[in-house]
Design a protein around this nucleic acid. Structure first.
Length: 493
DNA sequence: TTAGCCTTGATA
DNA sequence: TATCAAGGCTAA
């Protein structure tokens, strides 16, 4: 562990445990020393932060080493925090400082503290004798065991919050900071879990520095609880008002919706748990990494493998879409509409592009071979007449795509143009913002073709737009006929 | 590291 | 004395 810590190439987060443990031990020693001294002499009023009291138990060298390591860690964390403030949890000391400032403001605003206390009491009182059989944790929706650090939470989230604050942990989110936190997924991302704890109103100041067990919540902390409770109440009211104007669905609902569509198209039962992977470093590499295992799969491909791959591709699609520059500029409901309605087209293009790289126009799978795989996949069941037509159309399209030899830029621009295409047949949502956005990307594509193909630019540009229409048509056809698995069957093995 | 269970101590 | 909300312990 110590060698890891000294290595500059390893992120500081990996090496935190060692120093955290040392600091924890140091604080414990400090606490026990003070406690024993207080027991010996009740008259003395010692401050637990006074370093001199600890020297009777541990050597100066120990203290220096422990603190040197601790402050080195703190410094490295601060640097990291500045660089990736959106993806790394803030410093716990900073959080607690902000809470103190807030508390001072609260006290200044309301001079009648006594009145405040009675109000808090009145708020707490009615809850005391209410016992519900199942109360949800406000962070992960598991069974709550009570109010912990100001919020109704389960034992897991309580312990997680305590450990984070006590050990001054700093977490990193490998996604975009919007991971789902529920009973099953809460362990996947510590950053998003802690962020949710704070957002919901857990108070870091309620974690006791002296680690003294038992007792009631101090008045000042209770004031912070009240503040957060009122703040949440206001936010909920505002969100409710907004929801009347815009129907915005949550991440969980979005995934469930896509999941349902996928189930219907693949016509299979779901037994696989969705796994989420957020890798935005190289989207095409990630997508192809998801597809490569199919080239080594048993023959014929299993439902399970196709479904698992589809889910990985969907996750990558969501991550990729959210990383696009215009994502934050569009209204939430429009983004949700795109995510819900365009994922299949994007995935279809990805698989076809993967196939076009695996094959070339001379060795493309034959019509008969394709039919044979389809029959094998359907376990020798008779296939409908429409299936013959779909295979034909699909193979024709694939051959065209192989001959196109898309560049990476063309692939990216085509992907975006598929996703943001204005759909004039759909009047259920305001898509006006997509018109101008589409124009921007069309201009970009044309400009790119002008640069690399000069006189053939317009022809190529039109070819790509035609490809987009073919993708729209084929995706809808595959979905309608529950043949969305067809592109997967063509992956060479 | 997590999370369920137990202990502790202030307060009604 | 019961309750609540802190903390600790420990198996997984």
């Amino acid at each position: 562990m110590s060698s890891l810590q000294s290595s500059p190439s390893i992120p500081s987060i990996i090496a935190t445990d060692y120093t955290d443990d040392l600091f924890k031990k140091f604080k414990l020693k400090n606490y026990h020393t003070i406690k024993s001294m207080n027991e010996d002499d009740d008259q003395m009023n010692m401050d637990s932060s006074d370093g001199s009291t600890t020297q009777s138990l541990i050597t100066e060298n120990d203290v220096e080493t422990d603190f040197e390591k601790y402050y080195m860690k703190q410094n490295s964390q601060l640097i990291d925090t500045e660089l990736h403030s959106n993806l790394i949890t803030p410093d716990i000391d900073d959080l607690q400082r902000k809470e103190k400032e807030l508390l001072q403001t609260l006290n200044k605003v309301d001079q009648k503290i006594e009145q405040h206390l009675s109000l808090i009491e009145n708020n707490v009182q009615p809850m005391k004798h209410k016992r519900k059989p199942f109360i949800q944790c406000e962070v992960c929706h598991d069974k709550a065991t009570g109010i912990h650090y100001g919020l109704m939470t389960c034992e897991g989230c309580k312990g997680f919050f305590k450990r984070t604050v006590q050990n001054k942990k700093i977490y990193r989110c490998i996604g975009n900071g919007s991971c789902i936190i529920d009973k099953f997924e809460r362990k996947r991302c510590q950053y998003c879990r802690f962020t949710k704890c704070l957002e919901k109103g857990m108070v870091t100041g309620a974690v006791r520095y002296d680690r003294a067990p038992g007792g009631r919540t101090p008045v000042n902390i209770a004031l912070l609880y009240k503040y957060h409770k009122e703040k949440r109440h206001d936010q909920n009211r505002e969100e409710f008002n907004n929801s009347l104007e815009h129907t915005i669905i949550s991440d969980a609902e979005l995934k469930a919706n896509i999941e349902n569509q996928l189930n219907q198209s693949l016509a299979m039962d779901s037994k696989i748990k969705v796994t989420y992977q957020f890798d935005q470093l190289s989207i095409l590499d990630t997508l192809f990494d998801h597809l490569k295992p199919l080239t080594r799969s048993p023959i014929p491909l299993t439902d399970e493998l196709i479904k698992k791959t589809s889910r990985l591709l969907i996750d990558s699609f969501i991550s990729w879409y959210r990383s696009l520059s215009f994502y934050c500029l569009l209204k939430n409901d429009l983004n949700q509409f795109i995510l819900k309605n365009r994922w299949s087209k994007y995935i279809f293009l990805v698989i076809c592009q993967f196939l076009s790289i695996q094959y070339d126009h001379t060795n493309l799978i034959s019509y008969d071979k394709c039919l044979q795989r389809l029959i094998e996949y359907q376990q020798n069941q008779l296939i409908s007449s429409i299936s013959y037509e779909i295979i034909n159309q699909f193979l024709t399209f694939l051959l065209q795509l192989i001959n196109l030899h898309l560049t990476n830029t063309e692939f990216t621009l085509l992907s975006i143009l598929i996703v943001i295409q204005y759909d004039k047949t759909n009047k259920t949502i305001d898509q006006n913002d997509l018109i101008s956005l589409e124009q921007v990307y069309l201009k970009n594509l044309h400009k790119y073709e002008n640069e690399i193909r000069s006189c053939k630019a317009t022809y190529r540009f039109n070819q790509l737009l035609h490809t987009r229409e073919q993708i729209n048509h084929l995706t809808e056809l595959l979905f309608k006929e529950s043949h969305f698995y067809l592109p997967y069957l063509l992956i060479p093995y």
